[in-house]
Simulated assay, not measured.
Amino acid sequence: MTQHNQMDKQFKTLDDFLGTHFIYTYDNGWEYEWYAKNDHTVDYRIHGGMVAGRWVTDQTANIVMLTAGIYKVAWTEPTGTDVALDFLPNDHKVNGTIFFPKWVQDHPEITVTYQNEHLDVMHAAREKYATYPKLVVPEFATITYMGNAGQDNNEVISEAPYATLPDDIRAGQYFDADYRRLNH
């Protein structure tokens, strides 16, 4: 267990959740990295699945605590994809449902980029291609990493995903003691 990996942390309040950096793997094998940047913003990188290689910062989201230690996060992306995640960090579990528009299912490669620099492309594809029927992907996931990055840390999700990145983070080879990226 690295200095940042806090798999034994007990979550009780919304403040316990905000500023937490997660890596989790869905039961279908898709690996995601996700960061509760603050009470209304999330950042994430996708390491596996049909949109592996996609990464996003400053996504506006609705973030609430349902009850002590259980959190719901939901948002709509510029692609038209809707996401609803339930985090149970004390049990190292996530339940997520992703609602992919038909165009993302048919043309996932369009979304595999740093979305923030290609919002015009996402908007154009959303208007050009079919939205329905949506591909609904409901899955459970197992959390494999939880780190206390602090809120509004722009170094957590700050570069494109690469093959060993999740393992580098879990091994303590990606962030320094202040949760800043090594090897800029």
Results as ranks from 00 to 15, higher is better:
Leu85Arg: 11
His92Val: 04
Asn90Leu: 10
Phe87Lys: 11
Glu117Gly: 02
His118Met: 10
Gly80Ser: 01
Phe100Cys: 06
Gly80Phe: 02
Phe100Gly: 02
His118Gln: 11
Lys102Gly: 04
Gln105Tyr: 06
His92Trp: 13
Pro89Ser: 10
Val112Cys: 05
His118Ser: 11
Asp86Asn: 13
Gly96Ile: 13
Val104Trp: 08
Phe100Tyr: 15
Trp103Asp: 01
Phe100Asp: 11
Phe99Leu: 09
Val83Ile: 15
Pro89His: 14
Leu88Lys: 10
Ile98Val: 14
Asp106Ile: 01
Thr111Leu: 07
Gly80Tyr: 04
Pro101Cys: 06
Thr111Gln: 03
Val104Cys: 03
Phe99Cys: 01
Asp91Trp: 10
Asn116Leu: 01
Trp103Ile: 02
Val83Ser: 09
Thr113Pro: 00
Gly80Asp: 01
Phe100Met: 06
Val83Glu: 12
Val83Gly: 04
Val94Asn: 10
Asp91Gln: 15
Tyr114Asn: 10
Thr113Ile: 09
His118Gly: 06
Ile110Val: 07
Phe99Asp: 12
Glu109Thr: 00
Gly80Glu: 02
Val83Ala: 14
Gly80Arg: 03
Tyr114Pro: 02
Gly96Arg: 10
Glu117Arg: 04
Lys93Ala: 14
Ala84Lys: 07
Leu88Thr: 08
Lys102Thr: 06
Asn116Gly: 08
Thr97Leu: 06
Trp103Ala: 06
Gly96Pro: 09
Asp82Ala: 14
Gln105Ser: 08
Asp106Met: 06
Phe87Tyr: 15
Asn90Pro: 06
Glu109Leu: 00
Ile110Glu: 03
Val112Ile: 15
Ala84Ser: 12
Thr111Asp: 01
Ala84Trp: 09
Val94Lys: 05
